[in-house]
């Protein structure tokens, strides 16, 4: 079976040496791949490349066998709903001048050209699943906590039933107990929809708890490790 996402010999530079080079891995449906590295190791840049937000210098990203970078903007737009990104700063990923109900219904209203009020009714089960009260959605983002916005963001993303989610440190700005809740939710939704996930983090313990296998970006070369190998790697790191 062909993998959902396959990355072949990807490299990226901004003109002063490689950010990363020779990155190759595949992600199947329902699988979670971790990308681990310190700040500045290029893991967020790699995440953006996977979803076509950033151009790569060389290499290929195949989504269901189609090379993202050979597609025209128009064809790419058709693919976009299937791959979604969850960003690090929940406050910054919502439009501050839009009520939450307008923000979360925007993707479906845009892609399927439906009325926002209808979309919102359809989203109610999902809103309940992430543990938010529907009356919160008449608020603006600055009236809510980071955990609440990140949950609303998950409603927004999962409303499109994506096949692939790139989660770029979705909880590094959140509290520990909220982090555990968000990860629990992500796992549940992922299981239900058989979504593939590329998970970016600098916390080795989060990696171990979430991922099936882990890619390490540390400037030298890209390595894929199984969870067991990674546990050993972490043990050596913290000495």
């Amino acid at each position: 079976m062909q993998p959902l996402l396959s990355v072949e010999c990807l490299s990226k530079n901004y003109g002063h040496g490689d950010i990363f080079h020779d990155v190759s891995f595949t992600v199947d449906a329902g699988e979670t791949i971790g990308l681990f590295g310190m700040s500045g190791s290029g893991k967020s840049t790699l995440g953006k490349c996977l979803i076509g937000l950033e151009r790569v210098s060389s290499g290929h990203v195949l989504f269901e066998g189609v090379d993202l970078f050979t597609l025209s903007e128009r064809k790419l737009r058709k693919l976009r709903p299937a791959m979604q990104m969850l960003f690090q700063h929940p406050e910054m990923s919502m439009d501050p001048r839009m009520r939450l109900c307008d923000s979360v219904t925007e993707p479906l209203a845009y892609h399927e050209r439906r009325k926002r009020s209808d979309v919102f009714l359809d989203l109610l089960p999902l809103i309940a699943a992430v543990g938010l009260r529907s009356d919160l959605f008449s608020c603006y983002p600055n009236q809510l906590s980071g955990g609440e916005i990140q949950r609303a963001m998950m409603v927004k993303i999962y409303s499109l039933s994506p096949k692939l989610i790139i989660a770029d440190e979705p909880t590094s700005m959140l509290d520990m107990s909220v982090q555990a809740q968000i990860f629990g939710l992500m796992k549940n939704l992922q299981k239900k929809n058989n979504t593939a996930c590329v998970f970016i983090s600098h916390d080795p313990y989060v990696m171990l708890a979430m991922c099936d296998c882990i890619g390490i970006l540390d400037g030298v070369r890209f390595r894929m490790m199984s969870a067991e190998e990674f546990a050993e790697y972490v043990a050596i790191l913290s000495v």
Partner: peptide, 16 residues
Amino acid sequence: LVAALPKNGMTPMPGM
């Protein structure tokens, strides 16, 4: 809180 730490298995607490 301690149980919700990633190294302790990330058992979430219910509610907010």
